[in-house]
């Protein structure tokens, strides 16, 4: 594919750019669902992630809440990307995004609007509206979205910095169920494509990169694994392997060239050749 060629032009540093910022790691990490802050920070470090998502909540009344993210702020080279989780429509997401920017000082925002609390599928219409407003407000907008190629172009047109289509339902661990749609999104995208949600195993992350995705975002697959720190490292290796495989070009599929019994090209012999 076209995107592949660029990678093969002997670029020394295989970086990707989102919203004018350069990154070398193609693994983005979520910070939810970890048993404690120490494990979470250990996993983030092991993942090598340079973009880490966080959520925004109101402070509880209990005097001493555990500050999970305190240690993150001290890590060098990490961009915090607040999400808008909890928002059920565009205006809630816009509000959450502005609070997140205030709190993190980062223009990055993962727009995430899922009105149904059970399957958590993103609302395409509200997501589009929130992305439009936030992009105009100079956010680096990274929308979590259904793997829909038309929505992808619409989001690109309103100024999103990347697209984050789901591989399968969030938390389902069903992997790249949307592979066919992801290929269509990749074919025409002018901005980075990051598979977000649905991954369970590092091999699925590798497959996403082999397919030409620019990056993947994982959270549950690490946080809910047997050993989150080790799993984060495994995802980092898989993402790197997938990317390298993409740049190298996969070997042919199938059992070689079939030969026709009645040639389709016999009509060519007459004129010249």
């Amino acid at each position: 594919m076209e995107r592949q060629g660029k990678a093969q032009q002997g670029e020394l540093r295989d970086e990707w750019i989102v919203g004018g910022h350069r990154f070398s790691s193609r693994l983005l990490m979520g910070t939810g669902k970890f048993e404690n802050a120490e494990t979470m920070v250990g996993a983030v470090l092991a993942s090598g992630a340079q973009i880490v998502t966080v959520a925004l909540r109101r402070i509880g009344r209990s005097p001493r809440e555990d500050d999970m993210l305190g240690p993150l702020g001290e890590l060098k080279g990490i961009t915090l990307m607040p999400n808008t989780s909890g928002a059920r429509n565009a205006s809630e997401a816009i509000r959450a995004a502005r609070l997140g920017r205030e709190l993190c000082g980062s223009p990055f925002v993962k727009v995430e609007i899922h009105p149904n609390p059970h399957h958590l599928m993103p609302d395409p219409i509200e997501t589009f509206e929130a992305a439009r407003v936030l992009a105009a407000d100079r956010f680096v907008v990274m929308p979590y979205m259904p793997a829909d190629p038309v929505l992808a172009k619409r989001l690109e047109d309103v100024g999103c910095a990347s697209l984050m289509p789901l591989g399968s339902a969030i938390g389902s661990g069903n992997g790249l169920a949307t592979a066919g749609m992801l290929r269509l999104i990749l074919r025409d995208a002018r901005i980075p494509v990051i598979v977000d949600a649905g991954l369970r195993s590092p091999s699925e992350a590798a497959a996403a990169l082999e397919m030409g995705c620019d990056a993947v975002l994982v959270n549950s697959a690490v946080a809910a694994s047997g050993d989150p720190v080790a799993m984060a490292a495994a995802f980092a290796q898989a993402v790197e392997a997938g990317r390298n495989a993409y740049r190298a070009g996969l070997m042919p599929r199938g059992g070689g060239a079939a030969v026709a019994t009645s040639p389709l090209t016999s009509f060519l012999s007459v004129e010249d050749s």
Partner: peptide
């Protein structure tokens, strides 16, 4: 309305004000 950190000291409170305080938590 968001109160920027720089103007918190100057910003007075009145009876009945609604204050919301947000912090970052883990999220994906």
């Amino acid at each position: 309305e968001v109160v920027p950190a720089s103007s918190r000291s100057a910003r007075g409170l009145r009876e009945g004000d609604r204050v919301d305080l947000f912090r970052l938590v883990g999220g994906g």
